[in-house]
Simulated assay, not measured.
Amino acid sequence: MKSITSLLRAEEEEEQQDPFLDESNCYCPLSPLQRLYGFGGCLVAAFLCMLLSLVAFARPVKFAIIFSFGNLLAIGSTAFVIGLARQVRMMFDPVRIYATSIYIGSVVLALVCALCFHNKILTILAIIIEICALIWYSLSYIPFARRMVSQLIVSCGDTEI
């Protein structure tokens, strides 16, 4: 009888120590299920914004605003799961600091080019940089993914016969 109760206590302690859906990760008192719903809702809204931005592709100002908002929703959706403070800490880890900085800079640049300069070419260029930075940032969460992609790009660019 003692072994079963001690096993149940050990499982409860492990669940309480699980940082993935820990209640202390968020300043709002959401249950783990509510956090997953928030994550899913934010992610669906992000994809809808990105799809809607394709409709507005002929107008770079609207495209940049909707597309950048969709990207920010996608990045922010993980804050529901792991918490905002942890998300910010992870974004500014030494491994991701450059990708995060370039991504945030390109989002700002795309919005400035679209809203202030009304320059279509610069806006499209900033959106391309934003997409590349988002991909590079996302690859930083997969072990060895950036190294493999770097080696693939180098091997594709190698023209030695």
Rank of each mutant, 00 (worst) to 15 (best):
S3A: 11
S3C: 02
I4P: 00
T5L: 09
T5N: 11
S6Q: 14
L7K: 12
L8E: 14
R9S: 09
E11G: 02
Q16W: 04
P19L: 08
F20N: 04
E23D: 10
E23H: 09
S24W: 06
S24Q: 11
S24M: 08
N25R: 13
Y27L: 10
Y27P: 03
C28S: 13
C28A: 11
L30T: 08
L30D: 12
S31G: 06
S31I: 06
P32Y: 10
P32N: 08
L33Q: 09
R35T: 14
L36A: 06
L36H: 08
L36Y: 08
G38R: 05
G38T: 06
G40V: 04
G41S: 11
G41L: 06
G41K: 08
V44A: 14
A46K: 05
L48A: 12
L48G: 03
M50Q: 14
L51Y: 11
L51N: 06
S53Y: 10
S53D: 10
A58C: 06
R59T: 13
R59Q: 14
K62F: 13
K62I: 13
F63Q: 07
I66E: 04
F67W: 15
S68G: 07
F69H: 02
G70N: 10
N71S: 11
L72K: 03
L72R: 00
G76K: 09
G76D: 12
G76C: 03
S77D: 09
T78E: 07
I82P: 01
G83I: 00
L84T: 15
A85P: 02
R86G: 01
R86E: 13
Q87H: 10
Q87M: 13
Q87E: 09
V88L: 14
M90Q: 12
M90H: 08
M91H: 07
F92N: 05
F92Q: 02
D93W: 09
V95D: 15
V95L: 14
R96G: 03
Y98G: 06
A99F: 10
A99N: 12
T100P: 01
S101A: 15
S101W: 02
V107Q: 05
V108Q: 02
V108H: 00
L109D: 01
L109G: 02
L109W: 10
L115Y: 08
L115A: 13
F117T: 04
K120R: 11
K120S: 15
K120Y: 04
I121S: 08
T123Q: 03
L125S: 15
A126G: 04
I127S: 00
I128Y: 02
I128F: 06
I129P: 01
E130Y: 00
I131S: 07
C132F: 12
C132R: 02
A133M: 01
L134N: 07
W136K: 03
Y137Q: 04
L139M: 14
L139D: 03
S140L: 02
Y141F: 15
P143M: 06
P143S: 09
R146W: 10
R146T: 12
R147P: 00
M148L: 13
S150M: 13
Q151F: 14
Q151A: 14
V154W: 11
C156I: 15
C156L: 15
G157V: 01
D158Q: 07
T159D: 07
E160P: 00
I161P: 06
I161Y: 07
